[in-house]
C-alpha cells in the first residue's frame, strides 16, 4: 500500500507548539520582500497558481473562460509565465484538457466525493478514475475527516493509498481540510498519514470551510514534509488553498517555503497555490513594479 514504505505510528506524531509556530510566522511576516526579489517572487507565484473553479454552478462556459484566463493571463504582458494548472470537478476534466492542449498548463481535478468526502471507498475510487480517465494530470482528493477524528488512522491511510493507486501516473494532492481538524497537532498527524500513504502533495483545504489555508497551518505541513525528506530523501509538494487572495500574503507563503525547505521547493513542481482571485492581484503588483504606478482592477480581466 502506498509508494512509500516507511510506516510510522500516527498516534505519536511530532509535537507542535502553537505559540512557537506563531512566533515563527511573525518572523516570516516581518521579512521585507522588495524590488527585484519581489518581482521574481511574484512571477514564481503566478507560475504556481492552480486556477480554480469548484462551484455547483460551474458550466462548460465558465470552464472555458477559466482556461482562457489560464492561457492568457494578461494580454499586455505576454512575457509572463502561465499558471501551473486549472482545477475543476471531474466532469469538466476532458473539456479543460482540450482547451489547454498545446500548453504546459496541467489539468487538476478534485475527486473522492469532494468536498466532504463522505462516501464509500468504492465511490471515491470511481470518482478518481473518472478524473484520471478524462485525462487529469493531477488529482486533488479529500481525506475522511470523520474517520480521522474517530482515530481510524489506518483507514485514512489505506484510503489515500488506494486512491494513489487509482491515480496511475496522475500526481495526487491530498486535502487535509485543516479547518475541520481543530488543532495544529492534528494537522501534523494528518500530514504524516497523507505523506506516508503516498501523497505527492499535501494540501490544506477545499476552499469550502473556514479557516482555509493559514500560514501557521502551512508551516506545520511544511515541517512534516521536511521531516519526511530528512527521513527518506524524497520530496513531497505543498499546496495551501483558499484564503490567499493577495500578492503580499502569497509572498509570505513563498518566504515560509524558502526558509523551511530551501530553494528546491520553489517551483510549481513542489509548491502550488489553490486560488481564484490571487492571479489578478499578483498581475497588478507586477504591473506596479514594472510601471511604478498603482493599478486598478478594471484593467485586469475577471474570468
Amino acid at each position: 500500500m502506498g509508494n512509500k514504505n516507511k510506516f510510522s505510528d500516527f498516534r505519536v506524531t511530532a509535537r507542535i507548539d502553537q505559540v512557537g509556530i506563531g512566533d515563527r510566522i511573525a518572523r516570516i511576516r516581518s521579512r521585507s520582500i522588495k524590488k527585484e526579489a519581489k518581482l521574481q517572487g511574484l512571477k514564481m507565484i503566478l507560475n504556481m497558481i492552480d486556477l480554480t473553479t469548484l462551484e455547483g454552478a460551474d458550466t462548460t462556459g465558465k470552464v472555458q473562460q477559466l482556461c482562457n484566463k489560464a492561457k492568457f493571463l494578461h494580454a499586455s504582458n505576454p512575457e509572463l509565465p502561465t499558471v501551473a494548472a486549472v482545477c475543476v470537478y471531474p466532469n469538466f476534466v476532458s473539456q479543460a484538457k482540450k482547451e489547454l492542449e498545446k500548453t504546459r498548463i496541467k489539468v487538476a481535478s478534485v475527486a473522492t466525493a469532494f468536498p466532504a468526502g463522505q462516501s464509500s471507498m468504492e465511490v471515491k475510487i470511481k470518482d478518481t478514475k473518472l478524473a484520471v480517465d478524462g485525462g487529469a494530470d493531477e488529482v486533488d482528493m479529500v481525506i475522511s475527516r470523520g474517520r480521522f477524528h474517530q482515530g481510524e488512522y489506518s483507514y485514512v491511510y489505506d484510503e489515500i493509498a488506494a486512491v494513489k493507486e487509482a491515480c496511475g501516473k496522475a500526481r495526487l494532492k491530498v486535502i487535509l481540510e485543516t479547518g475541520e481538524l481543530g488543532s495544529l497537532d492534528k494537522v501534523r498527524r494528518a500530514s504524516d498519514i497523507a505523506i506516508y500513504a503516498g501523497a505527492d502533495f499535501i494540501k490544506t483545504s477545499t476552499g469550502k470551510i473556514k479557516p482555509a489555508a493559514t500560514l501557521p497551518v502551512t508551516c506545520v505541513m511544511l515541517e512534516a514534509i521536511r521531516d519526511y525528506f530528512y527521513e527518506t530523501g524524497s520530496m513531497v509538494g505543498m499546496k495551501p488553498a483558499g484564503g490567499i487572495s493577495n500578492a503580499k500574503l502569497a509572498l509570505q507563503y513563498l518566504m515560509l517555503v524558502k526558509e523551511t525547505l530551501g530553494n528546491g521547493w520553489l517551483s510549481n513542481e513542489w509548491f502550488r497555490y489553490g486560488a481564484s482571485s490571487l492571479a489578478n492581484d499578483v498581475l497588478m503588483q507586477i504591473e506596479k513594479q514594472r510601471t511604478g504606478i498603482y493599478q486598478s482592477k478594471d484593467y485586469f480581466s475577471k474570468d
Partner: peptide, 16 residues
C-alpha cells in the same frame, strides 16, 4: 526522485 537528503538554502531567490 531520491536526492541526497540535504536542503539547499544558498542559491535561488535572494532578498533585495
Amino acid at each position: 526522485m531520491a536526492k541526497s537528503p540535504k536542503l539547499e538554502f544558498d542559491v535561488g531567490w535572494d532578498l533585495s
